[in-house]
């Protein structure tokens, strides 16, 4: 039996790749990943909008798949790879998803936007040429109270088209 039991008040040292960089930080076992990202790593682009895993404002890409970072403990992400909104752009170039949201007015108050974009990131990895219905289903875990979603859908369609025509974005963003 070799399992290491971290006591409830332990400060667990976590090491993970965040937006392509090696980062370390401490978290007690119960700390939610979203609090680790915002308060330990200082990346406040990821937001908290609810406490029931409904709103998706906290969506990040963990080990290649979009997840709600309020519904993962930080310790679970140890050793993993994390992509947040701050890591979407590359070398000063906006990611096509960011570009799409800007061009198509896919945001108003901006609070849901990072989560929405990370959900779109996952969707477009799996489904590079989604139908409108697929897009709507793909962002169904992300609530937006401002836009009525029409322009978010257009933003993601824009990004999909751009990603298909520009292979330099193909190999992951992290």
């Amino acid at each position: 039996m070799t399992a290491l039991i971290y006591p409830a008040d332990a400060k667990v040292r976590l090491e993970l790749t965040v937006n392509g960089e090696r980062r370390v930080g401490e978290a007690e076992p119960r700390m939610l990943l979203v609090h680790f990202i915002r308060e330990v790593l200082g990346l406040t682009g990821t937001h908290v909008g609810c406490d029931t895993s409904n709103c998706g404002a906290c969506t990040v890409v963990l080990n290649g798949r979009a997840v709600k970072s309020c519904t993962v403990f930080a310790v679970q992400a140890n050793g993993g790879s994390l992509l947040t909104v701050e890591g979407l752009a590359r070398k000063g170039r906006l990611h096509p998803i960011q570009e799409g949201f800007w061009e198509k007015h896919g945001l108003q108050c901006g609070y849901c936007t990072p989560g929405m974009m990370m959900a779109a990131y996952d969707l477009l990895q799996k489904s590079p040429n989604p139908t409108e219905e697929e897009i709507r289903r793909g962002i169904s875990g992300n609530l937006c109270r401002c836009t009525g979603y029409v322009k978010i859908v257009e933003a993601i369609e824009y990004a999909a088209q751009k990603l298909r025509s520009d292979p330099s974005w193909r190999s992951g963003g992290d």
């Binding site: 399992a3 290491l4 006591p7 409830a8 332990a10 076992p29 119960r30 939610l32 406490d51």
Partner: peptide, 30 residues
């Protein structure tokens, strides 16, 4: 949004998980 404290263990095999569940007080599978 804040859960109560808990101790945390990573199980690396089914056997280990079962043993941990058996040993630890008031444990749950994550």
């Amino acid at each position: 949004v804040i859960p109560d404290r808990f101790s945390y263990t990573v199980a690396h095999s089914v056997e280990e998980a079962v043993e941990l569940l058996h040993t630890l007080e008031d444990s749950k599978v994550l």
